[in-house]
């Protein structure tokens, strides 16, 4: 239940539910309405990205007493059934973002959520460029197109608060604990640059299981890595002060 003073955002990523996980996570969601107003799922909801696993995820998060918003992660793409998984989740009442935005009414407050899977490429000074082989150009262009879509969506969203939900990370800080050699596969500074340009109150991501919970973009937007192994708890809850 929302209050007039705070907007309480629950968030978790990388729950990696398999067909043998039915009911395992659901029990941790009991009473979530006492703790939070919305729940954000930061991708890698399945292990292998099969439709059967997608149905398990849909059932785990179906009919919760709080609004649920999700993005998919790289695992959810593995079996090329990402659209079918997203459809299952939407049928279960989950809002699934795919490089677009949604506005949630939370009590008196409007929360704009923008995001999608995100992608990699690395961080400023140590990142890939759109140069050389077509495969490298495609890799970096994929991230650039995502970042551009998020920037547009953030500018269009009319809300009191704006949150970005992603699977991949926008900064290195929340990857600390992962081998630096794989940072380019864990996120991209292009995501941070886009969000810093358009503005947001919070950026939530997953993907980096050995990373660190808390960080900040160069523009001062708080970033939280909510991968389940990082949190070590069913979900994190982040409170935004009500708008002025």
């Amino acid at each position: 239940m929302s209050t007039l003073t705070d907007l309480r955002i629950a968030a978790v990523g990388d729950v990696h539910l398999g067909e043998d996980s039915r009911g395992h996570y659901r029990k941790h969601l009991e009473g979530i309405e006492e703790r939070a107003d919305v729940l954000m799922l930061a991708g890698d909801l399945t292990r292998h990205g099969t439709l059967e696993e997608g149905r398990v995820v849909a059932d785990e998060f179906r009919d919760l007493p709080v609004t649920v918003v999700a993005v998919l992660g790289n695992h959810d793409y593995h079996s090329d059934q990402q659209y079918e998984i997203a459809s299952e989740l939407r049928d279960a009442g989950v809002t699934v973002l795919d490089d677009d935005g949604a506005v949630l009414q939370c009590g008196e407050t409007k929360l704009g959520v923008v995001g999608g899977k995100g992608f990699g490429g690395g961080f400023a000074g140590k990142s890939a460029s759109e140069f050389g082989e077509r495969e490298i150009k495609n890799f970096v262009a994929h991230t650039r197109h995502i970042a551009e879509a998020w920037k547009v969506a953030l500018k269009e969203v009319q809300a009191d608060h704006r949150l970005v939900l992603s699977h991949y990370s926008p900064i290195k800080e929340t990857l600390e604990g992962e081998p630096p050699e794989i940072y380019p596969f864990l996120g991209s500074y292009l995501l941070a640059e886009a969000v810093d340009t358009a503005g947001a109150d919070l950026f939530v991501h997953g993907h980096a299981h050995k990373g660190t919970e808390k960080g900040m973009t160069p523009g001062g937007i708080r970033v939280r890595n909510v991968a389940l192994p990082v949190l070590g708890r069913a979900y994190g809850v982040y409170c935004l002060d009500d708008c002025d």
Binding site: D6, A10, H28, R35, G232, R233, A234, G236, V237
Partner: peptide, 9 residues
Amino acid sequence: IVEPGEDEH
């Protein structure tokens, strides 16, 4: 997985 802890403001 443990229960959610303290909120962060």
